[in-house]
Nucleic acid binder design. Sequence first.
DNA 1: TGATTTTTATACCGTTCCGTATAAATTAAA
DNA 2: TTTAATTTATACGGAACGGTATAAAAATCA
Lengths: 236, 236
Amino acid sequence: MVQKSGRSNPSRGLAGGKASKPVSGDNSSAPAATPPRKRGRPRAFEPDVALKQALDTFRQTGFSATSLDDLSAAMGINRPSLYGTFGDKRELFMKAYQRYRMETNALFAPAFDPKLNVRQMLEMVFAIAIKIYLSGEKGPRGCFTVMTAASEAMADPEIRAVVQKAISNADRTFAERFQQAVTQGQLPASTDSDAVAKLVSASIQSIAIRSRAHAPRTELEGIARSMIDLVAGPQR
Amino acid sequence: MVQKSGRSNPSRGLAGGKASKPVSGDNSSAPAATPPRKRGRPRAFEPDVALKQALDTFRQTGFSATSLDDLSAAMGINRPSLYGTFGDKRELFMKAYQRYRMETNALFAPAFDPKLNVRQMLEMVFAIAIKIYLSGEKGPRGCFTVMTAASEAMADPEIRAVVQKAISNADRTFAERFQQAVTQGQLPASTDSDAVAKLVSASIQSIAIRSRAHAPRTELEGIARSMIDLVAGPQR
DNA sequence: TGATTTTTATACCGTTCCGTATAAATTAAA
DNA sequence: TTTAATTTATACGGAACGGTATAAAAATCA
């Protein structure tokens, strides 16, 4: 019943090339490139912003509880257009999740500036995490990876794989940074970088969980502070 | 106890209320417990075991992705009977969650035996948590509270309330135990019991998340070990 | 026995779901 | 202008959904 579209898939050429758009500030309606207009009727929507709306909707209500009507309405796209551009609901979910990962990786990147010491890095990481998890027009949204791990990752091996990758990636990023801090003398030589990294990840995941349960911001910040002090020593 | 003699009902047990849950501790008495046979056609199922099946099903696939057909099949009960006994899907979910809380509270209780020191308490807690989260015929199941926080707690205030309660209850239980350990000299006087409690809760929540993403048991045990050593000092 | 009470079993109802067929609309190319 | 290509808009179809009406079944009571 899968019915691979036998005819040429038009989104192929587009999807391959424009993976990431820098979203620069000067997008004043005149992308100087003036992309070569394709043959037929032009799209009435921007795939990237539509995908962002889909992501927001999925983050709000999760995969199962989000209907295609919800998505269609939030994205401002008719169902057939949605299908033609993003595939079925599951494909759309995967693309939205992929976008989420790119987006949040970019948001966290500044915290890993090598000029920052470990404490500064952690303070930035937690601040960014709390900001992300509490953002949202309709209340806090938590972490999409944690949400997905708790729900879809169970039954869907492919989704589980990307979630595993996201979690282990976070662990590894912290571990490498801590190991580096040990060699730089910012952390004691006895530090178990892998272990500490997983505990930091754990506290971030807990912040995500609690944020979705509407825990007060002070509670989230308290967890962050405790973890920072535990890793980098009490506040000077 | 209001045993009206007008109807001459020779049975113990409440006739009017439908909260008939006489499964008290003495169930291992003579096989002739002679349950007070009610008037009409007897039930063909045990409500408590049916509720357990419902809980298992909800834990597997979550609220939205579980259909009443799934529940009906898993519980071995027709839809109308299910309705008559447990109410609609959401009510059933609430009752299943309530049962989960009772069940897990009972499983964790031995770890809080006052005869155990802090390290022993933590080792038991983590061992029990990992055992619960990895149990399940069809793979790991994680923590139902964390699952629910990540999904239904968002849109449903009542569900959110019970999830909040479960989380804060865990925090408080740990905090009280740590505070007690401070007074007993098992932990340094400088210990911030509330903060440490939340970090322990956080690591448990992370273990739940990771278990659902099929993290290997050694990873979960590693997190537990790290947290225990962090709180109670390195292993002696 | 027959009346009453309660549960079971089947089948149904209206709604929502996901996905698609179809035709109109809009563009570039011929 | 005609033709081809592509997207939009409407509407539909089968399936699954949550929930319930209805009658048969199984028990007690009179």
